[in-house]
Amino acid sequence: MEPYPYTVNPFVHQDRFWYPFVSPFDPCPPIRAKRYVVPPNQFLGFQPPNLLQFPPAQALMKGTLWPALFSPYKKTGKVEIKDP
């Protein structure tokens, strides 16, 4: 199973997938890949000084001044899912 064929950067690639058992007797159509998000605060540690910043107007809209702390979220169902 190789979910990311490129170099993984946890600050960019925040989605994780796991693949639950699918029974032939499941009543609903199976969701083969279950997604969860691991936000960048899990990796940053104590924030170092002088990180790259968004321009102020953009930062106000995004909710953070630093790209390193930005966590985009796409609705479940709109995420491209790779089967194992």
Binding site: P39, P40, N41, L44, Q47, M61, K62, G63, T64, L69, F70, S71, P72, Y73
Partner: peptide, 13 residues
């Protein structure tokens, strides 16, 4: 809601 979600990420940090 996406703005509010991002603020939770920053607060957790």
């Amino acid at each position: 809601l996406k703005f509010l979600r991002e603020r939770e990420v920053v607060h957790s940090q």
